[in-house]
Lab assay of single mutants.
Amino acid sequence: MKATFQVPSITCNHCVDKIEKFVGEIEGVSFIDVSVEKKSVVVEFDAPATQDLIKEALLDAGQEVV
């Protein structure tokens, strides 16, 4: 499964690193693409990962998800 999250609070590479760390810890996540320019995060994943778990990880990383 693939999901795109709009994350307007992404401003720098530190944000990218933190997002990759938090989302990458979720079992089932196979790909993460964070774009500072587009302020988006694209995640490819399989169970047990879910969109809700990914959104929670983004929030835990200090990001706003819309």
Rank of each mutant, 00 (worst) to 15 (best):
I54C: 01
F31Q: 08
E25T: 10
E37S: 11
K18N: 07
C12Y: 10
V42A: 07
K39V: 04
K21S: 07
V41H: 01
S40D: 04
A61I: 07
H14M: 15
I26W: 00
E25I: 10
A57Y: 00
Q63C: 15
I10L: 11
V7C: 07
A57P: 01
D17T: 15
V23H: 01
F45R: 01
E25R: 14
G62N: 05
C15S: 12
T4Y: 14
C15W: 11
D17G: 08
I26Y: 02
S40L: 15
K55D: 02
T50R: 03
F22W: 09
C15M: 12
F5G: 06
K38N: 13
H14Y: 11
S30Q: 10
I32W: 01
Q6H: 15
F5V: 05
G28Q: 00
K18P: 04
S40P: 02
L58V: 03
K21V: 05
V43F: 00
E25M: 14
G24M: 12
K18L: 13
D46P: 02
F5N: 05
V34S: 01
E56G: 12
L53E: 07
V43W: 00
F22M: 09
G24Y: 12
M1R: 11
L58S: 03
L53D: 05
K55V: 15
V65T: 05
K55Y: 14
V23R: 00
V16M: 06
L58N: 02
V16L: 07
K21N: 06
S30F: 12
S40K: 11
V16Y: 05
I26P: 00
P8W: 05
F31H: 12
Q6V: 13
T50M: 03
F45Q: 02
S30N: 08
V16R: 09
E56V: 09
I54K: 01
V66I: 13
D46Q: 13
F22S: 08
I32G: 02
I19L: 04
V16C: 08
E25A: 15
T11A: 09
I19F: 03
S9G: 10
M1V: 09
D52K: 12
A49M: 01
F45M: 00
V43T: 01
F31G: 07
K38T: 11
K55C: 09
Q51R: 14
V23G: 02
E64N: 09
V36R: 04
Q6S: 12
D33Y: 15
A61F: 08
D17L: 11
F45G: 01
T11V: 13
E44Y: 15
M1T: 10
G24W: 12
S35W: 04
E56L: 14
H14T: 15
S9Y: 10
N13R: 14
P48D: 03
V42I: 12
H14D: 15
A47E: 09
D46I: 13
V41Y: 01
L59V: 09
D33G: 09
D17Y: 10
E56C: 10
V36S: 03
I10D: 04
D17P: 06
E37H: 09
T11G: 08
F45W: 13
V34N: 01
S35C: 07
D52Q: 13
P8V: 12
S9K: 04
V7I: 09
V29R: 00
S30C: 07
P8K: 11
Q6D: 11
T11D: 10
E37D: 09
D46H: 10
G24K: 09
V36E: 04
M1G: 09
A57H: 02
E64Q: 12
D60R: 14
P48T: 03
V23P: 02
I54Q: 02
K38C: 12
A61Q: 04
K2F: 06
V7D: 05
L59Q: 09
K55N: 05
I54M: 01
K38R: 11
V36L: 11
V23M: 04
V23A: 03
V65Y: 06
N13H: 15
F22I: 13
N13L: 12
D60T: 11
F22L: 12
Q63K: 07
F5R: 00
E44A: 09
I32M: 04
V65A: 06
S30M: 14
S9C: 12
I26F: 03
E27F: 08
D17R: 13
G62V: 12
G24F: 08
V29P: 00
N13E: 13
A47C: 09
E56D: 10
V23F: 03
A61P: 02
E44Q: 10
K2D: 05
N13K: 14
K21Q: 09
F31D: 04
A61T: 04
L59R: 12
E44S: 10
D33R: 09
C12G: 14
V42N: 06
F31R: 14
E56W: 09
S40A: 07
H14C: 13
V43S: 01
T50P: 03
A49P: 02
F45V: 00
V7T: 05
A47F: 14
N13W: 10
K38Q: 09
D17N: 09
L58P: 02
E56S: 13
G24T: 07
V66W: 04
A49S: 02
I54V: 04
K2A: 04
T11N: 08
K39E: 04
V36T: 05
V42M: 12
A3C: 12
T4E: 14
F22D: 03
V16I: 10
T4P: 05
I32A: 02
G24S: 12
V16E: 04
L53N: 05
S30P: 00
A49I: 03
Q63D: 04
K2V: 11
G28H: 02
A49K: 01
E20Q: 14
E27M: 10
V29F: 00
D33A: 11
E44L: 14
V23K: 00
E64G: 06
G62K: 04
G28E: 00
E56H: 14
K38S: 11
F22C: 04
V23E: 00
E37F: 06
G62D: 06
P8D: 09
E25V: 11
E56M: 14
V23I: 11
D17W: 13
A49R: 01
K55I: 15
H14R: 15
V36N: 03
F5T: 06
I26L: 09
V34W: 00
G28K: 02
F45L: 02
D60P: 03
T11P: 12
S30R: 13
E37C: 06
E64A: 08
F45A: 00
H14Q: 15
V34Q: 01
G24E: 04
D17I: 14
A49W: 02
A3P: 09
L58G: 02
A3Y: 08
T11S: 10
K55L: 14
N13A: 13
A57D: 00
K38G: 09
D52I: 08
L53A: 13
K55T: 07
F22E: 04
G24A: 07
A49E: 02
T50I: 02
I19P: 02
H14A: 15
E37A: 13
V66L: 09
G28V: 03
Q6E: 11
D17F: 09
K55F: 13
V34E: 03
I19K: 00
L58K: 01
V29H: 01
V66K: 09
S9A: 06
A49N: 03
C15L: 10
D60S: 14
